[in-house]
């Protein structure tokens, strides 16, 4: 019996599912860390993902091409980013209110339009082109690793590339530095002749595009061409937690997303042993524990630094 549980957990299927579950969260987190660097508390990502998923499904259906769906979701992401920045940056509205309202708006508008376009039963009866799964030659022959790494939607691999590119962008380009400065110390940025508000606009637009991508992955890759009402399922909030956990560092955010994905996969794998309703809570509880861990460890580090400074001053 126990052997059975362990072999279920450490099956390649668990790790393959981990990568699948982590990808939409990681994509959204890549967007969320831009706004986090720019000093905007963005809890509206869930709505951005949901609308991205819907636009991708609609675009893919009407253009009969998954690529067009992705393009539509990205273009729409730009719009949403502009809309979000208009309120949070230009009009200086409460980020919390705008984020909450954006999420509810997304819930309402996607459900309304999906019923208008596809009818009550959603996209199930319609042919929405989805993305094919990619088999990587050679790697798919390796016994364990092949099953884990190969055969995913193209988004899984694109995300790896994007994580690296975003790391380069944030820490190795002037634009990344300016965006970080716009959040940490906007006045300093102003003294070197850069407009911090413009950087926040850029960060917000990038966030919209990434959330659009995450949504496109959900409807076209993860669920193979279907839109379900409320399908973002709090992933935007989980992505936000990942961003905080990672201190807005792209590779670390990806690791946090993987952690979420692992526990999500674990819950799915353990369904034959425990009720799926109980295992379903695991990723959300883990997110809370992650948040607590981050905050506590950050406080400890600050305390240690303060003590060191005190010791240096005292003798």
């Amino acid at each position: 019996m126990h052997n059975n549980i362990w072999s279920t957990i450490f099956d390649p299927g668990t790790f393959s599912q981990m990568l699948r579950s982590a990808t939409p969260v990681a994509l959204a987190a890549l967007g969320g860390l831009m706004t986090e660097h720019a000093g905007i508390m963005n809890i509206g990502m869930d709505g951005m993902i949901l609308m991205g998923a819907f636009v991708a499904a609609v675009g893919s259906y009407f253009c009969a091409s998954a690529a067009m769906g992705i393009l539509a979701a990205m273009l729409f992401g730009i719009l949403i980013g502009l809309f979000f920045a208009l309120f949070t940056v230009k009009l200086k509205s409460d980020e919390f209110i705008i984020g909450c309202a954006l999420n509810t708006f997304a819930l309402g508008v996607t459900a309304f339009l999906s019923r208008e376009i596809f009818g009550l039963s959603g996209t199930s009866g319609y042919a929405v082109p989805s993305l094919p799964n990619v088999t990587i030659p050679l790697i798919d022959r390796i016994p364990f690793v092949g099953k884990v790494l190969s055969g995913h939607s193209i988004f899984v691999y694109v995300t790896w590339l994007l994580v690296f590119l975003m790391w380069l962008f944030v820490y190795r380009t002037p634009m990344g530095l300016w965006i970080r400065a716009s959040g940490e110390s906007p006045e300093t940025l102003r003294t070197v002749g850069k407009n911090p508000e413009r950087m926040k606009w850029i960060a917000s637009i990038l966030c919209g595009v990434f959330c659009g991508l995450a949504g496109a992955h959900l409807s076209l890759g993860y669920l193979n061409g279907s839109f379900v009402e409320g399908m973002s399922a709090s992933r935007g909030y989980i992505a936000f937690a990942c961003v905080i956990f990672a201190a807005a560092n792209p590779p670390r955010a990806y690791i946090a997303a993987l952690m979420f994905g692992f526990f999500d996969a674990l819950g799915l794998r353990l369904q034959s042993y425990v009720s799926s309703d109980l295992t379903g809570t695991i990723p959300y509880l883990i997110t809370i524990i992650m948040m607590v861990y981050v905050v506590v460890s950050r406080q400890k580090r600050r305390e240690r630094l303060a003590k060191q400074q005190l010791q240096r001053l005292e003798p």
């Binding site: 509205s93 309402g108 459900a111």
Partner: peptide, 23 residues
């Protein structure tokens, strides 16, 4: 769901109004 759309647009409008007035 039209109801949710109307409700959130009210929020956006009010946020915009206060924002514009503050600006």
């Amino acid at each position: 769901q039209l109801y949710l759309i109307i409700q959130t647009i009210v929020i956006f409008c009010m946020a915009a109004e206060t924002g514009i007035r503050a600006a």
